[in-house]
Amino acid sequence: MSYLSKFLLFFFFFTFNIPNSYSAEKQEKLLKQSWSFDGFFGKFDRASLQRGYQVYTEVCASCHSMNLLSYRNLSEVGGPSFSEEEVKVIASKVEVLDGPNDNGEMFKRPGKPSDKFVSPFANEKAARAANGGAYPPDMSVLVKARAGGADYIYSVLMGYENKPPKGVKLEDGVYYNKYMSGNKIKMPKPLSQDSVKYSDGTAATEEQLSKDVVTFLTWASEPHLEARKRIGFKTVVYLLILTVLVYLVKKKIWLRIEPKV
């Protein structure tokens, strides 16, 4: 009979582990990082988010759009915490197509915090044409759209190898990456030492750049992560208290009929 409880435990354990077992291909173990946003009380490292935004704008944004984000998000609670003034300045530096005006023409104007991030290409076809047929994916929810999440993106950024292993042939415009599925990637190695100059004096090593931009991308795909974990913790504490109380009430109630048996 004690099978039964094992079965139940097994049930939970088993079902919850299935999503991990999908990718049956042999894959390089990801470079696991300890992220500030991991764990029960995880929070984003603000400075890292701000640096990550800098990396995004100076490097990634020349090919990758982030069209689900708006400039105002940069000053919202739980994000990079730029001040509203800073966001106005950031937004005003981009040109946004607006209109039509009273003459029926589209016109360009400086961006406002309520504008969406401006995309580097007008549409997917233009993006493909400019990138040798490959479409640089939109990065708004990229971290959630890849198995392995933040660790995976970090690993891909760090996983370029100058010389592919023997036996692997690369066509023109294709690069070898240890962690990319299929090991072939059309994006040239994007980050290297000092590809961005940090204003806060942080040394812009490849690891640091990758870590910062991944932190930024994680926030971008899960902007309410901090609120979720905070509310989650409160809810768990609350439920534990209520569960204990209800258990005591239940015990009291059932005591009433015990003598009858």
């Binding site: 809810t235 609350y238 439920l239 208290i241 209520l242 109380l245 209800v246 005591l248 009430v249 009291k252």
Partner: peptide, 20 residues
């Protein structure tokens, strides 16, 4: 009394949860 207190406390805590 203890049961009454317990029931009242539980109901109150539960009500807060429903509100939330």
């Amino acid at each position: 009394n203890r049961r009454n207190f317990l029931t009242v406390a539980t109901t109150a805590v539960g009500a807060v949860g429903v509100g939330a």
